[in-house]
Write a protein that binds this DNA or RNA. Sequence first.
DNA 1: TGAATATAGCATCGGACCGGTACGATTTCA
DNA 2: TGAAATCGTACCGGTCCGATGCTATATTCA
Lengths: 150, 150
Amino acid sequence: MLSLTRKTEYALIAVCHLAHVGQKVVSAREIAEQHGMPLPLLMNVLKKLNRTGHVRSIRGARGGYVLAVSPEEFTLDALIEAVEGPVHLVRCTNADINGRKCTLANPCPIRKSVRKVHELLRELLNRITVADFAYVEPEAAQSSAKAVAQ
Amino acid sequence: MLSLTRKTEYALIAVCHLAHVGQKVVSAREIAEQHGMPLPLLMNVLKKLNRTGHVRSIRGARGGYVLAVSPEEFTLDALIEAVEGPVHLVRCTNADINGRKCTLANPCPIRKSVRKVHELLRELLNRITVADFAYVEPEAAQSSAKAVAQ
DNA sequence: TGAATATAGCATCGGACCGGTACGATTTCA
DNA sequence: TGAAATCGTACCGGTCCGATGCTATATTCA
């Protein structure tokens, strides 16, 4: 199950949309319609991003959302954590999180190595920012691809 | 859900165990007991690894399993694919896999970038091999950690 | 002041998939 | 021939994602 959830997809698209329009206020409905996403789902995601402070919400008529952090500083790791909760490669990387201890015989032979891989994954996710997911499609995606590849 | 399944954990531990004992035949029961894993689960995993040719099974009394590939050439990516199926960061990276097409409005603004991230993840998983998960715990894990960090 | 718009919060439901179990068949060795 | 061990398949339960609905709150505008 090494995959992103659909929530993260929606969040990524929405945040890219917000990054693209700058400081203009955009309603969830507008974003949903433009990308063919289910509105309630998108709203759930935006609520979470609002709670974590990554987007700012403006209520009422003519309300909507504005990106509250700079795209360059908004890492994929932060986005995933905001939407899905913290990333755990395996359950026992942080046994104290869910209380359930690793039941494997101690010492678990792969614990250290798994932890190392976990860190590598986190590093990768922290190198990638929302700015890399530039809201461009046709050919201009090369500059963003370069940043991601770095 | 950026995490490995428990199957992958079991597979990793078992393969490390096999790598550690060299060409000696080890039964699934022996591996399970030594690491406190549920035997049937481990057998399910070993069956899959046998079907993909990564371990060789010897039936009958005194039977068991032997690693069929060199630990240095057995990548984490291959192991995950053998146990869980192919890795998909998002559903639409290979829309033809499960038939279900991406329902988002085209052109999906993040498709290209997501695909790039997907490749980076695959690269990471391909750099890590079973040999990096050396079957050592106390302090000697540094040589393997070095290889992983590379 | 009232209606319309839009987000906030919570609760619920269905389905997919992982984790775990069970049973019988097959093969090998003593 | 019987014991040991793998092979194959089918099944069940729990968890969590995906999705929906309703109510409350805040803002704008006529």
